[in-house]
Design a protein around this nucleic acid. Structure first.
Length: 487
RNA sequence: GGCUCCAUGGUCAAGCGGUUAAGACAUCGCCCUUUCACGGCGGUAACACGGGUUCAAAUCCCGUUGGAGUCACCA
């Protein structure tokens, strides 16, 4: 069996769609699983939609996610160039298209945009839904007429010539054999009026020339697949293994689009997802491993990935589960890497001179996504306004009255206390609790409330007081006493 | 609308003729605990429907219904 070669062929038109990333990932995994070659090819045949920054986005995301290519524009493997606009310079696409024209598998078309629009309009029903295929008008042109038009410089495109009867069958690794009536096949444009090949055509030519063995694509391309097959057949080329993946949808089961808010890798990164999570999560959309397990690094995926386990039905991108997974990754992170992500965010909320690393430690197991940190630690800089009803907690058996008592009794002890480490404060509190024969909650609840002004906090009274330090802790407790007394 | 594809809990999904129909997220309850979270334990919840084939169907076939994708000189 020949060595596997896969390719990721994005067009630089904007952000990296997660569906795109998954395609790239599967291509990468199919290749790496078999020790094959993963190539990056840039499909920039649409000059109108081309956006230069998109190139950086492509390279950056691939680097960030670890999908390193073996060949590409920046890594020649002997199949270059790897950018279609560069490949076009040699006139190769046109050459191949002409070969098809000679074989009768394609033809020149001089139809104007207006004629095509009229054609469409005339075959459209009242509800504006029915769209016709090209009527092969220019197929009827004589050789002489074509020559004359070409000589006169009339703008032209080259279209595929599909038969009007019979059927075409293509095979997909996931969906099996799919057969369609040839009369359904539109004579798609191969070479555009500007001389560039269309995506469909360049794709086939380049995949062949680059020796690509497995083609992974989203199943939105399923309906155009038969036309590809005809192209391969017309050229007499071997058809690669098609692997169509199910669509990734939003919660409404519609193709994931920008408005969902998490359609691109950039969106996800901005929302505080780790690259590892994105890769892991996206791998599991439409594919599942044979063992009962969900957390996989890229390396591990390379080992277990078997594309035959890709499923057929669409998968909803469940942001809730993605967050859970991100939380798992955060918990598993070593402190050092966690701090790199967390500290900058903590700084946004905490301006005072507290030990940010300690704050980070408090929060590490309590967040799913980095921005979650903010609202959890907003009380450090400034004690929020809070209602004294917060002192009342049924389970802790506290109310505003006994809370006041506890705070008043603890205040002098805490004033006298020098050691404001967790252990120091704990020892002090425990001693008091033991002496008074109370439950922990009876005294710790009021303390934590006074010191944080919040119902829920990361860490308990000890942790918070250690970070706040003696002076601030005492100030907040006095404030609590004052509030309770004035109630 | 034509064509194509798809159909197991709210979501991701295992299953590939014989199972008490896994597991995960979410949700609910309990435990742990100074709150929340983490962690642990447990619960609720699914084979769209109708016909076949078969001793036996979530699994195979047909139909219905539902959903999606696609129908560009975009990719």
């Amino acid at each position: 069996m020949s060595k596997i070669r896969t390719r990721f062929a994005p067009s630089p038109t904007g952000k990296m769609h997660v569906g795109n990333l998954r395609t790239a990932l599967y291509e990468y995994l199919i290749a790496k699983h078999e020790n094959g070659t993963f190539v990056l090819r840039i499909e920039d045949t649409d000059q109108e939609r081309f956006v230069p920054e998109a190139l950086d986005i492509i390279y950056n995301t691939m680097k960030l996610t670890g999908l390193n290519h073996d060949e590409g524009p920046d890594k020649d493997g002997g199949y270059g160039p790897y950018v279609q606009s560069e490949r076009m310079k040699s006139g190769m696409y046109l050459k191949y298209a002409k070969e098809l024209v000679e074989k009768g598998e394609a033809y020149y078309c001089f139809c104007t945009k207006e004629r095509l629009e009229n054609l469409r309009a005339s075959s459209t029903t009242e509800d504006g839904k029915e769209i016709a295929k090209y009527d092969k008008h220019c197929l009827g042109l004589s050789k002489e007429e074509v020559e004359a038009n070409l000589k006169a410089g009339v703008p032209y495109v080259i279209r595929q010539n599909n038969p009007e009867s019979g059927t075409t069958t293509f095979h997909d690794a996931i969906y099996g054999d799919i057969t369609v009536e040839n009369e359904e096949l539109d004579d798609m444009v191969l070479i555009k009026a500007d001389g560039y090949p269309t995506y469909n055509f360049a794709n086939v030519v380049d995949d062949h020339l680059m020796g690509i063995t497995h083609v992974v694509r989203g199943n939105e391309y399923l309906s155009s697949a038969p036309k590809y097959n005809r192209l391969y057949e017309a050229f007499g080329w071997e058809v690669p293994e098609y692997v169509h993946c199910p669509i990734i949808t939003d919660e409404n089961h519609k193709k994931l689009a920008k408005r969902s808010g998490h359609a691109s890798v950039e969106d996800l990164l901005e929302q505080g997802f780790l690259p590892e999570t994105i890769v892991n999560f996206v791998a599991l959309l439409g594919w599942s491993p044979s063992e009962d397990r969900e957390i996989y690094s890229l390396k591990e995926l390379e080992e277990v990935f078997d594309y035959h386990h890709i499923s057929k039905s669409p998968a909803v991108f469940d942001i809730t589960k993605a967050k859970w997974m991100n939380g798992e990754y955060i918990k598993a992170m070593d402190m050092e890497s966690f701090l790199e992500y967390a500290i900058p965010i903590i700084r946004e909320v905490v301006a005072k001179d507290y030990d940010l690393e300690k704050i980070a430690g408090l929060v590490k197991t309590r967040i799913e996504v980095f921005p979650d940190i903010k609202e959890k630690i907003d009380f450090f800089d400034e004690l929020p306004e809070y209602d004294i009803a917060m002192y009342t907690h049924k389970k802790m058996k506290t109310d505003s009255e006994n809370s006041l008592e506890v705070l008043k009794e603890m205040l002098p002890l805490l004033e006298a206390q020098e050691d404001y480490s967790i252990a120091g404060i704990e020892a002090l509190c425990k001693e008091y609790i033991a002496k008074k024969e109370l439950k922990n909650g009876r005294v710790l609840w009021p303390l934590r409330t006074a010191v944080s002004g919040k119902q829920m906090t990361p860490g308990g009274a000890y942790e918070i007081m250690e970070i706040l330090g003696k002076e601030e802790s005492l100030a907040r407790i006095r404030k609590g006493i004052e509030l309770l007394e004035n109630a």
